[in-house]
Simulated assay, not measured.
Amino acid sequence: MQILVIEDDQTTAAFVTKGLRQEGHGADHVANGREAFAQAMAKPYDLLIVDRMLPGLDGLSLVKALRAAGVATPAIFLTALGGTDDRIEGLNAGGDDYLVKPFSFGELSARIGAVGRRQATPQIDTILTAGDLKMDLIRRTVTRAGQTISLLGKEFALLEHLVRHKGRVQTRTMLLEEVWGLRFDPQTNVVETHVSRLRSKIDKPFADEIIKTVRGVGYVVEG
């Protein structure tokens, strides 16, 4: 994997980049949030490792800006801010995982592997459909009734999972595990928030709903 380490603490950055390279990854390092934004926009990385407290542009704002610009590169927050609210902010900002300092490199490596497995796209079913909705997984585009719909990275991943499993109810636990890679309940409304955002884009402007709520169970895509 090609990984961009975005960390202003030189000791931590050196430790992480050295470990990544020893495992066979390519690792670049940037210490400034604005420089990281420019580099992540210019070069196709497989993963971002992001500190939250950065000069120039903080980690949350950086990931939000990348998602708004259509960059869906997975991001793992690696930060000393470990409170529940901090984790919620990180996930809602578009982060794919959240690891609190101090940390072991072994755990970071395992989380990198998990994110990589979730992002791996099979060479089949690169076009997904549900009714008049179409997802092109190669071009990362979504259309409905011929109209282009712009989705952020996690919204795209959530919709992809629901459409891949259309006709089958997906519980909140399933979505947390498969879309966010969480094996525990973070006690947040991150799933509900993202489903609501998806509906505002792919259902509200149209006559028929694609995402259905199965009360007390979860969500299902029909079509």
Rank of each mutant, 00 (worst) to 15 (best):
S61R: 11
V190C: 09
K134Q: 12
L151E: 13
E89F: 07
E178V: 10
K166V: 05
G216S: 14
H29E: 09
S150N: 11
D136R: 06
L48I: 07
G131A: 03
A38D: 15
R172K: 14
K134H: 10
V5K: 02
F184V: 03
T129Q: 13
G216R: 11
L48Q: 05
Q170D: 10
L198V: 11
L4V: 04
D208S: 13
I6T: 02
T84A: 14
K201I: 01
R139E: 15
Q2M: 08
A68M: 12
A120P: 01
N32D: 15
D203T: 08
D96E: 11
R67G: 10
R140H: 12
S200T: 14
G181K: 04
L133H: 11
I6E: 01
T143H: 02
T213C: 02
A120H: 13
E192L: 12
E89R: 14
T141Q: 12
R21L: 00
A145C: 09
I202K: 01
L137Y: 09
A72H: 15
A145P: 03
G153F: 06
T84S: 13
S109W: 07
I202A: 03
R21M: 09
V16D: 04
K101G: 07
L152R: 15
R118G: 11
T173W: 00
G146P: 01
G116P: 01
L159V: 12
G56W: 10
G26R: 08
L60R: 02
I210K: 12
G106V: 11
N32R: 10
T11C: 00
A38Q: 13
D96I: 02
I76F: 04
E192G: 12
D203H: 06
G90S: 02
T143C: 01
S200C: 09
I124Y: 08
H194C: 10
Y98N: 10
G94Y: 07
K154V: 14
Q170I: 02
Q39C: 03
I149M: 08
L78G: 03
A14F: 00
L182Y: 02
H194P: 02
I112P: 05
E160P: 01
R117A: 15
I202L: 08
G19R: 01
Y45S: 07
G216N: 14
A114Q: 14
L128R: 08
Q119R: 15
E160H: 06
R21H: 00
A120I: 08
L91D: 03
G70L: 06
E89Y: 06
V100L: 02
D97F: 07
